[in-house]
Amino acid sequence: MKKKGKTEDGAGDLMARIRAGDTAAEAELVERFGPTLAFLARRHTRDAAAAEDLYQETLILALEKIRADAVHDAEKLPAFLRALVRNLALKVYRRHGVSKEVPEDEHSEPVADSAGPLQHLLGQERQRMTRNVLRYLGNERDRQVLFRFYLQEEPSAAICRDLDLGQDHFYRVLHRARQRFRQLWDRGVSI
């Protein structure tokens, strides 16, 4: 049984108010679901500018669909929003003609690169923060874990075997790195 989360609480009422033309309800929807949509948009794009476009496009379309009563089940609102952002990302991906086929693992940044000087600066800031995380880890084996798991996408079992690591240690390394990055990220620039 899926735990009932904040999303389902009052989502039906929220959708009804949007259908009735309540603009405050629209703002509430953006406030509640916007951060996750922004994250998913970022995951499907190469840079923050493209993510921002995708995020805006998704919100506009979502509101249009809800206003037009195209979404009925409040519990399915997250699934609907998730599908919307992915489909729009694929659309942009195809529009840019990167490939005729959409890879199954679309999280690998399908949307075309529109990086400018500002994105370049932000990218450099992210590199600085990542370097700090690597220094914080301070251990070559931990760095190997990060690179091999997050970048080369090797199964955790293979990494643990090669580096003679227990699963607990493996996840501790990833968790520690994420926590450290989050601290830097929270007090630095959110990209």
Binding site: F39, R126, V133, R178, Q179, R182
Partner: peptide, 20 residues
């Protein structure tokens, strides 16, 4: 969509992955 803590961790992890 329902868990701000997981979302924050996912955001940080995603940026870490990109940084790497």
């Amino acid at each position: 969509f329902t868990c701000p803590d997981c979302l924050r961790q996912a955001q940080a992890g995603e940026e870490l992955r990109r940084g790497l």
